[in-house]
Computed example of a mutant assay.
Amino acid sequence: MRISTTIFLTDETITPVRLARALEQRGYAGLYLPEHTHIPAERTTPYPNGGDLPREYSRTLDPFVALAQAAAVTRRLGLGTGVTLVAEHDPIALAKRIATLDHLSGGRFTLGVGFGWNKEEAADHGVDWATRRELTRERIGLMRALWAQAPTPYAGGHGQGVRASHAYPKPVHGGAPRILVGGAAGPTLFAHICAYADGWMPIGGAGLSRTLPELRERWEAAGREPGALRIVPYAVVPTPGKLAHYADQGIGEVVLQLPPGDEMTVLRTLDDFLPYV
């Protein structure tokens, strides 16, 4: 089982360079970073986990810039977003950013896709909350058109379109980087995974023995190759029993949650987690 990590990197935490080097030296498989462009000071959207919104949410580094630093000082470490709020981006510019990072890292990038929880943040990007999922689906389609080997046009129903274009670099492993969709289990989420992704990034990983059979059934019904589905539990607080349970479910990668702390705090946690590696 591959043991990866995630952390809210901020202007107050360990740096991307120091963390990436420490992860690779210790044999960790990957680093996934979350995204928030900003947190409106006045909002009515509650924090999904309850209580006050933690300080680090409003101080996150741009994940693509931070991952580019991590890529530059490592050779094997996987790099990913957990998650990119695709609806908040210009998809043409995002396609270029993703392809560039994947190219420069030698194909090490995984695109984690999310739909967000903060209505005010999305509204500042001009996102209609009710249609953000379909907007995300179309923007993924547009990016795939730009990543195609031959110039390919794309036209979606929410005004998302691009004419047949020359767009380089291309993702290293053909077509697109690995795409994982994050979110809570349900028919809508599973429909998105089966339509355009390579798998699911369930937050915390609870209840998989109940939800995975449904996703696998829908995956096969959509004509997808059964063995190609990837399940990557995300932001997991590890225990031996929990990881053994994931292994029994056929899961090959788990993303452990690191604290948003200074260098000493994070390195100590990496060492505490080493038995799982």
Rank of each mutant, 00 (worst) to 15 (best):
102 D>V: 00
71 A>Y: 00
30 G>M: 14
175 G>Q: 12
56 E>N: 02
63 P>I: 04
80 G>Y: 03
168 Y>Q: 07
73 V>Y: 04
102 D>M: 01
146 L>I: 11
26 R>Q: 11
40 P>Y: 07
274 L>Q: 13
270 L>Y: 06
76 R>I: 07
61 L>M: 12
45 T>A: 12
139 R>P: 12
9 L>W: 13
149 Q>I: 00
40 P>V: 12
254 V>I: 08
41 A>W: 03
274 L>D: 05
178 R>K: 09
228 A>K: 02
21 R>P: 03
152 T>Q: 08
268 R>H: 09
56 E>G: 03
264 M>Y: 13
206 A>F: 07
43 R>I: 06
258 L>A: 04
35 E>G: 01
23 L>M: 12
169 P>N: 13
47 Y>W: 15
11 D>E: 12
57 Y>L: 11
36 H>F: 08
147 W>L: 06
257 Q>T: 08
107 G>K: 08
196 Y>V: 13
141 G>R: 00
132 R>V: 14
51 G>R: 04
33 L>C: 04
262 D>S: 01
196 Y>K: 09
48 P>I: 15
9 L>P: 01
113 V>A: 03
34 P>M: 14
134 E>T: 14
200 W>G: 06
223 G>R: 09
95 A>M: 09
258 L>W: 08
261 G>P: 13
184 A>G: 07
112 G>I: 00
69 Q>N: 11
36 H>N: 13
218 R>P: 12
273 F>Y: 15
92 I>N: 00
71 A>D: 06
70 A>F: 14
227 G>I: 00
12 E>G: 07
98 I>G: 15
207 G>K: 02
258 L>H: 10
243 L>G: 06
140 I>N: 04
194 C>L: 10
112 G>K: 02
13 T>F: 11
10 T>G: 10
46 P>T: 08
168 Y>R: 01
203 I>G: 12
156 G>L: 13
37 T>N: 14
58 S>R: 11
214 E>K: 04
135 L>R: 04
263 E>V: 08
195 A>S: 14
58 S>P: 03
152 T>Y: 07
271 D>M: 11
8 F>S: 07
145 A>V: 03
171 P>G: 03
243 L>R: 05
154 Y>W: 09
94 L>A: 05
160 Q>H: 12
253 E>S: 14
94 L>E: 09
127 V>D: 07
258 L>S: 00
268 R>K: 11
111 L>N: 10
59 R>S: 01
169 P>C: 15
237 V>P: 02
46 P>E: 07
122 A>G: 09
171 P>D: 14
112 G>D: 03
29 A>N: 00
18 R>D: 14
58 S>K: 10
159 G>T: 07
27 G>Y: 11
219 W>L: 06
56 E>H: 09
22 A>D: 14
153 P>M: 07
43 R>N: 06
167 A>H: 13
112 G>R: 04
173 H>M: 13
85 L>Y: 04
58 S>H: 01
157 G>H: 11
207 G>S: 02
20 A>Y: 01
262 D>E: 06
50 G>Y: 05
265 T>F: 05
138 E>S: 08
102 D>C: 02
187 P>M: 07
140 I>W: 00
96 K>W: 10
272 D>C: 15
251 I>C: 00
14 I>L: 06
114 G>S: 10
266 V>A: 08
